[in-house]
Every structure is written in C-alpha cells, then in structure tokens.
Design a protein around this nucleic acid. Structure first.
Lengths: 124, 124
DNA sequence: CTCATCTACAACCATTTGGTTGCACGTTAG
DNA sequence: CTAACGTGCAACCAAATGGTTGTAGATGAG
C-alpha cells in the first residue's frame, strides 16, 4: 500500500471507502449509536475479520471512530468526514456551474484561455 | 467483472470513479467544455490507453458523456451524476442528523428500537 | 485464578485495478 | 486515393482489494 498523506490521498480514501455497499451499510448502522465490532459483524454474511477490515478502511478514511467500552470497541460514524466528502462534490459542481455561467456570457469574459491549471495533479 | 445493475452497484461505480485523483482531474478539465480524448490524454504522464480507461470508468459511472465531433469524441462531465452522489451523501448525513435529534431528545421519542432495517443490504 | 469473549493482526488466495504495448477500424486532410 | 490521426479494444503484468483461516493479546465474568 502506498502511504500518501496528501490532500488528494485523503479524498481517495474517503471516496474509496464509500464505494462499497457493505461499508455504506456499516455507516448507516453505526450512525444511530456505537456498535461493537462483533455485534456489527454478526449482521453480515462474512467473517469477523472481513468486517474488521471494512471498519479499518472506514477508519483510515476518517468516516468512523472507535472508542472502547470494556473489552469492546464501539464503532461510530464520524459526521465530519461526510461533510468533507460533500464539500469535495460541491467544488466539482461549482466548477461545472462556472461553465454554465460563462456560457450564459454574464461573467468573467475569458479568465482562462488554454492552459488548464491542475490544482491537484494526477499523482499516483 | 461482476455485472450488477442494482442501485447499489450504481453508487459503487459512482464513488469508485471519484476515488482517483486523475479521474477527479478529468472531471475538472471537462467541466469547462468538451475535450477530445487525445487532448485530454496529452495532459497526463501516462499512455493514451490508460486515460481512455479512466474515461471509460467515468462513463460507466455516468459522470461523463461523449459526443462526437468529426473524428474526435468530446468528453464532457455530466452534472446529474454529481447531484446523485450528493444525494447519497445527504441520505447518510440525514441518518446521522436523526441520531443527533434523538440525542437532543426533541423529536420522535422512539421511532425504531432495535432491529435496523437495511434498505440496501450487504449484497456483494 | 481461569476461562470465555472481543479484538487485532499475519499469512494466504482469487479477483480486480491500473498501467503497459500492439493492432484494427473509421474519418478527415491533402 | 492515401496517409495520418483519433479511437477502441485485446492481451498482458504488477499491485491492490476483499475475502479466508489461524494465532495471540486484553479484558471481563464467575
């Protein structure tokens, strides 16, 4: 695994974590209240370790946090990360909206002509 | 490849497509106006075919559409899909908000007690 | 203390992903 | 018409993903 702590990597982890139905379901189940990993794992047709890995993916993405209660670890979804994902989509959408505005011919006649600046870069 | 045309699969493809910096960059570059695949590929340190594959992933996710102009294919980002992704995040966030509201003890004393309904199911 | 439970983690395996090169096909320029 | 260009697709490869089983460390129950 490539350990990349860039902002881009953060979004990568976020969207990657969301791109799996089991993980999205875990987020839903843990939104109400904390669920122990065992209790969580009991709800899926796969091994405990597999669910544990999914939780780890969500945790690395910042979508979930664990706090201990006795010998259990309560998993709870972290709302901040959801907001972060939404902000990223908003940025993308704002760009599109910008295109529409230019098409309407109302704003910023020609702010950029040819060279597209890539603020994030296709690093991998 | 597992061909799954369920609603869950649609979200999978959407978020998976967004989970790559190159693809997010393609979305940005194609938000302004349509870009031919060649022109697009020239902007990245990888082969033409690799960029072509990224575009295909975006296309399968519905994030991008191609229209032909002469012998070129103009790639343009499809704003509807962005909205769809945002709606999915809103659903997740609404669930979390529901938890907070119950914690505040202001609304819906006990709408659901124990059995979590899973509207999407951990199918894979 | 002893045992059962919850969790973490390593090793392993099949499939998918992201990249490559090479080739075939349609279309446009000259 | 012919050549060059733009595109799509297949075959191949290394690495990542998603699953498995097994082992080991903490912690709480009795």
């Amino acid at each position: 695994m490539v350990v990349d702590e860039s902002a881009s990597g953060s979004l990568d982890r976020l969207f990657h974590a969301l791109a799996d139905p089991t993980r999205r379901d875990i987020l839903r189940r843990c939104a109400d209240d904390g669920l122990s990993v065992s209790r969580l794992a009991a709800g899926y047709p796969m091994s405990f370790a597999a669910v544990q890995k999914h939780v780890a993916v969500l945790e690395r993405a910042g979508l979930v946090a664990k706090r201990r209660r006795g010998r259990e670890r309560l998993v709870r979804t972290e709302p901040e990360a959801l907001a972060r994902a939404r902000r990223a989509l908003d940025d993308l959408e704002a760009l599109w909206r910008g295109r529409v505005e230019r098409m309407s011919g109302l704003l910023t006649p020609e702010p950029r002509t040819e060279a597209h600046d890539q603020q994030e870069g296709p690093n991998r």
